[in-house]
Simulated scan of single mutants.
Amino acid sequence: MHVDGVKRLVDLRGGINAVRQTSPLTARMVSWVSMLIMRQPQFSAQDDFGTGSGIPPIPEWQLDSFATAEDAWYLSEGTCDATTRNVFKRLQNVFRQVNNSSLPPTRLHDLASFVIHRLLSATPALQTDLPASISECIRYALISYMFIVQGPTYYSHAVILQDIVNRYIIHLEQIESDFRVYGAMYVWLHAIGLVAATGTPSYQWFASRTRTVAASMALTGWEDVFARIESVLWLDIPHGESMFRPHWDEAFGVAGWVEVEDLNYCLSEGLVS
């Protein structure tokens, strides 16, 4: 695919949303595959109300919201940038509405494409302070999660996802160096990282930290882990748990995985009481 040529053709037809009106499959393939090949979005995303010529949100994106975790520390204005916070809260709302039913495959793909294009196009935080790193961790976790729930479509997303994971690790390392009180968000961040990095050199980085996270929170098995993941952000899809659970079962299944030195470390750092 000559991406620049395709982009010009799309522009001549009025933008990716105009193409979608007459050929939805073509629009989905062009926007998705061009992003994977170039490793960054080639088309813009519309705003929350469907304004613009870019990739549109799905109808559920605009439905009336349920109560969200407004008091969650990680969604505060001083911690999370406005774009990431908005996407997170709207995804919470969408997932709550569809978890009792299901999203058709094309609707799920449209949601994943919209969210990933929106977040990858957002200006990343340039600061190296803790709030900026937390915000970037959430942003890259959301992008990774949408790749995970969507799965490979049209063309492998392995290369772009590895790029995302590499950036993700940089900011997680910043959090770990400055912020060592673990909670549900920290479990969620690492759970997504484990799955996103599966089969790559980065996997061991996440796996080696799983034990510390679990020990610090006195987690005893997958049920404890899942309760925390679900409390943050979770989409019920077929085989969803089966993608996440084996990574934690392996950690919990290692004989004596909660080592005395691990527990002593957590106690000395004030991670458990």
Rank of each mutant, 00 (worst) to 15 (best):
Q62F: 11
A122F: 06
G78N: 11
V10H: 02
E223Q: 15
Q204D: 10
D110W: 01
D163C: 12
Y265C: 08
A45D: 03
M185Y: 04
V94C: 06
T83R: 08
D4F: 08
V159I: 10
V272Y: 03
I148G: 04
E136L: 10
I169E: 07
S34W: 01
M146P: 01
V30R: 01
Q42D: 01
Y155T: 04
K89N: 10
G78L: 08
G54I: 04
S156A: 11
T79H: 08
L75H: 03
D64S: 13
Y140H: 13
M1V: 12
A67R: 14
T153N: 11
I143A: 06
R20M: 12
G199I: 07
E70L: 13
A255G: 06
A27K: 01
A112C: 15
D47E: 10
W188E: 02
P131F: 12
T128C: 05
S101I: 11
S156I: 09
R96G: 14
A158C: 03
R118K: 08
L9T: 12
V254E: 11
Y155K: 00
D71F: 15
E241G: 10
E136K: 02
H239P: 01
V213R: 02
H109M: 05
R228Y: 14
I37V: 11
H2I: 08
R245A: 09
S34K: 01
D11H: 07
L120S: 06
D249S: 08
G199C: 06
S202D: 06
D11R: 02
Y145N: 04
S121F: 03
Y186S: 02
L75Q: 00
L126R: 15
T128N: 11
R209S: 05
P56N: 09
Q46V: 09
T106H: 08
R209A: 00
